[in-house]
């Protein structure tokens, strides 16, 4: 499964567990409009670390806070660099 598909799959799962409805997603949707709140995103990042072996947001002090779904996926595709 591609990184992007893994992320989408896990987003759907976290949304389900948190009783949230995911918005139709594309790269330009603001992350905070995705249907997941801050807590949902924090859980998502922890789950993705288990599945992808990577947390691009805590590897350095110079985190770019992702604004869109596209930013978020890119952070994983670039391996946190």
């Amino acid at each position: 499964m591609s990184i992007k598909l893994t992320i989408m799959d896990e987003m759907a799962r976290v949304a389900r567990e948190h009783g949230k409805t995911l918005a139709p997603l594309n790269d330009d949707v603001a992350l905070l409009d995705s249907g997941l709140d801050s807590l949902g995103l924090a859980v998502l990042v922890a789950r993705l670390e288990d599945r992808l072996g990577l947390d691009p947001f805590t590897t350095s002090d110079d985190v770019q806070f992702p604004v869109t779904v596209g930013d978020f996926v890119k952070a994983y595709e670039h391996g946190g660099h």
Binding site: S38, L39, A42, V43, V45, F57, T58
Partner: peptide
Amino acid sequence: PKRSPFTGAIVV
């Protein structure tokens, strides 16, 4: 706790 960029920390 585990550090989280979105909520400061998260429970694991």
